[in-house]
């Protein structure tokens, strides 16, 4: 079991854009009973490759071992732990909140504060889109909990190295 108090690690991978790559990667985690908290996959400018960002928690020594075992896979070009590195890190979340017309102003104020935008709205609900780092999204979500959150979905982290170099 992954201990939830353990630190999150952001791992970025460059991989060959071939079928089965994702399974091979997932199996390196599951072999040790490790869970992947979030995952983002997208093709790079060169369509032969994809970039993946994986967030996982666990013993840093074991995660380090997992990362070099990922690098060993034939289809992986590189796998790097980007935790504590100088990177741009963003996530996006959609949050659907139940709110009456009276509560709407308060929700919209919150929304404004976090630079979130309204993407859908009805008589009794409002759907917000927020982008930013994980802490910001966590903070907004926790403030919205005084209203009833109907649904909540969040992308994984997208990561890019700061500076001129490729991630």
């Amino acid at each position: 079991m992954t201990n939830t108090t353990e630190k999150s690690h952001s791992i970025s991978l460059k991989v060959a854009n071939k079928p089965g790559v994702l399974v091979r990667i997932a199996l390196v985690f599951s072999r040790r009973g490790y869970n992947i908290d979030s995952l983002v996959v997208s093709p790079t400018l060169d369509s032969r490759f994809s970039r993946m960002n994986i967030v996982a928690r666990g013993n840093p020594k074991i995660l380090g071992q997992i990362i070099i075992q990922l690098e060993k896979l034939v289809d992986i070009v590189h796998a790097k732990d980007r935790t504590d590195m100088s990177v741009v890190e963003k996530e996006l979340a959609l949050i659907k909140v139940k709110c009456s017309t009276e509560e709407r102003t308060e929700v919209l104020q919150l929304c404004d504060h976090f630079k979130a935008i309204t993407v859908d709205m009805g008589e009794n609900y409002i759907t917000l889109q927020i982008t930013g780092n994980s802490d910001k999204i966590d903070a907004m979500r926790s403030l919205l909990e005084k209203f009833e959150i109907i649904e909540y979905i969040r992308t994984g982290k997208v990561i890019m190295l700061r500076g001129e170099d490729q991630t």
């Binding site: 079928p19 089965g20 399974v23 091979r24 034939v74 289809d75």
Partner: peptide
């Protein structure tokens, strides 16, 4: 077959 053997091959192809 490739799914069943992922963890026990160096590499595989379908």
């Amino acid at each position: 077959t490739s799914g069943m053997t992922f963890t026990t091959v160096k590499h595989s192809y379908l």
